[in-house]
């Protein structure tokens, strides 16, 4: 590179880099090995779900399928048995959807109003309730589960509706346990909105709901998306509340999946099991791959939920 005609010689321009320096080999090697560990289960799920049982019995979980068959998927969706019911995971899927939609809407509606009140309309004691709420996020659910069963049963009896064991009971439970983290999320967001905006709206005569609907709501779309991602993933993946507050006809997908795969009766059909597992994971995975950065924000916000 050094040119004799140039008065100054020696190194010039960028330092030549060795592509395969020991550091780089270590760096990328480590990342690659770890990536295999993380990616493997998804791969295994996919290939297993596309194999027939005879092929699986030949034995290699990692081998790609020779004869691709979608039969396990069909069976998992429409025919797999839990106990005496043999209508597949589809029922759990629709139950989950029916639980998910009202839970997400209700929990976000309530929490956003809470957050808004806490950020802009503080009243005596509001911070105390908020602190209790945040500490509540750390209380193991097991401590509160049984009394809530009683509350649901009693309120249901009082109102003349069946809350315990129904989808609506579960919706209430999800709304309650989603509240701490969502309230925190919205409170922090609304606190960051310039106070002048709020004051200007007050001067213009807008009230609690006017400011909420016309000022705060339109400008906080991103935080609503984060909240929706957080709630959809969390509620879809829930198992504990589903198993306790619903009954077999209203079991969400995760509970039904567990019952299908871990049922002790009959021959184990691993391909059907993996198809069912993938089906259950599909909704949160789709959200994850589509939403990317927002998902990370969502889970980071939901982290304290544990």
């Amino acid at each position: 590179m050094a040119d004799a005609t140039v008065s100054m010689t020696g190194p010039r321009g960028p330092k030549p880099k060795r592509r395969f320096s020991p550091t780089n080999i270590m760096l990328y090697g480590t990342l690659f090995v770890v990536a295999v560990y993380y990616a493997l289960p998804l791969y295994v799920m996919i290939v297993t779900s596309l194999k027939g049982m005879p092929e699986i019995r030949l034995g290699n979980v990692f081998a790609p399928p020779v004869d691709i068959t979608f039969e396990p998927w069909v069976k998992a969706w429409a025919e797999a048995c839990t106990g005496i019911n043999c209508d597949g995971l589809s029922r759990g899927f629709w139950n989950s959807v029916q639980i998910l939609v009202p839970s997400v809407i209700l929990s976000i509606a309530i929490a956003s109003v809470n957050g808004y009140a806490l950020a802009n309309w503080k009243f005596k004691g509001s911070e105390v309730f908020f602190t209790i709420l945040i500490f509540g996020a750390f209380i193991p659910y097991q401590v509160m589960i049984y009394p809530i069963v009683i509350i649901l049963r009693e309120t249901g009896g009082f109102l003349g509706v069946q809350l315990m064991g129904s989808i609506w009971g579960l919706v209430i439970v999800h709304t309650i346990f989603g509240m701490p983290i969502l309230t925190l999320l919205f409170r922090n967001y609304f606190t960051s909105v310039p106070e002048e905006l709020f004051k200007a709206a007050r001067v213009d005569g807008a009230g609690f709901w006017g400011i909420y609907f016309r000022i705060m709501l339109p400008m906080s779309l991103p935080i609503f998306v984060v909240a929706i991602i957080l709630q959809v993933t969390g509620i879809w993946n829930d198992f504990l509340f589903g198993v306790i507050y619903t009954k077999p006809e209203t079991y969400p997908m995760t509970v039904q999946l567990n019952n299908i795969v871990n049922s002790v009766q009959g021959v184990k059909e691993y391909n059907v099991n993996m198809a069912a597992t993938l089906l259950t994971g599909l909704v949160p995975l789709a959200i994850y791959f589509i939403s990317g950065k927002l998902f990370v924000r969502g889970i980071a916000a939901g982290a304290v939920k544990g």
């Binding site: 770890v34 289960p41 295994v44 799920m45 297993t48 993946n237 999946l257 567990n258 597992t277 995975l285």
Partner: peptide
């Protein structure tokens, strides 16, 4: 790749690893 498992439920996680750690297959 490192983060996608976090999107999956513990049920899915448990079942996949039950299968991968299956002694027969």
């Amino acid at each position: 790749i490192f983060l996608y498992p976090f999107a999956l439920s513990f049920i899915v996680t448990g079942l996949v690893w039950q299968w991968i750690l299956n002694p027969q297959f």
